[in-house]
Design a protein around this nucleic acid. Structure first.
Lengths: 192, 192
DNA sequence: TAAGAACTTGTACTCAGTTCAGCTTTCGGT
DNA sequence: ACCGAAAGCTGAACTGAGTACAAGTTCTTA
């Protein structure tokens, strides 16, 4: 990794951690991009060359986590039936975020309307994850693929919504697994 | 209904229809709030007293549709099992929007990132719809309630995503019903 | 080590959204 | 019909997000 690339990653992380610190101190609205940039020692312009918006600085994934996440999607060794494999995949993805999720939850506690942005972060994986699902669906039904994807996301989000950042992370993983299992088994049936 | 109230509704509709016309002519980004307000014959300030944001003018529901929607939620006469009743409810809700949905879809075709806003419109019903679900769930499990809600929403959104505004509206309703049925039956099972 | 690519920065701009003080219109009671 | 209160409308002035761009700096590579 060349000097340029290392510097870039370092700058990314400086900006991000500075932003999270300020936001957790003062709240999202009370911190301007100007503040973050100044505190991080870069210009406003540079800030926007790293993050497309003020919201992104709070929710974008670290490039390394992102790479790990993509790696999970390309691992084709899961041979269980679709829904079980998907459940494992989602749990494995969640496992990569033990630092990230609590921070996001705390930001969202203060600014609930940012939920949309947080979901957007997940949505950036939609194409890849959909492709992953389509690969494992016998027929190439697009509607069915999308339904599986959206439902799995809904189950995941439900678990994250219910989880408090002070609870243990394992508890979240259990809930994620439960929600996916319930959704997969069919919500029209009584609880098993 | 007093004069004041009638005028207000009229102004709301003027602003809204003006906005939709301009947006469909030029695209969402190429229309400023200033343009909309001017064309609708009100001030910018007034615009923001009717709509909290530029996005809202494209996605907020007409007060009358909103009232009908709320009425559906309060109709307690459905006595089918939860998931069937919920399926019917969602279909009934969709039935109220034969004008609205095609317009929204066309706006979203041009500005896909507004999906978050569109979802937000649905989210404004979350509390009421969740209460509706909780009322019909035997035990008062919050997690389960949320899961049912989120999954139903996911199924609905899946159907809307798959629908093209040039397709017949009945086709959308069928797809909504199918998606809810599949999700309710359990996506882990093969297609029936 | 020099040419060129990639990155940073300040400046200047557009537009969304808020605040507020002053004006006009509607409403309810008399 | 009239008057005071309340609700609504407006323009002006402000903050802050996001973009465009030209000029300067730092890294890469041959």
């Amino acid at each position: 990794m060349g000097l340029r690339e290392r510097k870039k990653l370092a700058a990314w992380r400086t900006i991000r951690s500075t932003a999270l610190r300020l936001i957790s101190e003062r709240g999202f609205d009370a911190v301007s991009v100007e503040d973050i940039a100044a505190e991080a020692g870069v210009s406003r312009t540079t800030f926007f060359s790293y993050f497309p918006s003020k919201e992104a600085v709070a929710f974008d994934l670290d490039p390394e986590e992102l790479a790990q996440w993509r790696a999970l999607l390309e691992d084709d060794s899961r041979d269980a039936p679709l829904w079980e494999a998907l459940t494992d995949l989602v749990v494995d993805m969640a496992k990569l975020l033990p630092e990230w999720l609590p921070v996001q939850k705390r930001v969202l506690e203060q600014c609930p309307w940012l939920v949309h942005t947080a979901r957007g972060t997940c949505d950036s994986f939609a194409p890849d994850l959909k492709a992953w699902i389509a690969r494992r669906l016998p027929d190439g039904d697009d509607l069915r693929t999308t339904l599986v994807f959206n439902t799995a996301m809904a189950a995941f989000i439900t678990a994250v919504e219910a989880w408090e950042p002070d609870d243990s992370f394992d508890q979240l993983l259990d809930t994620v697994r439960d929600c996916l299992r319930w959704a997969g088994a069919g919500l029209a049936h009584p609880v098993s």
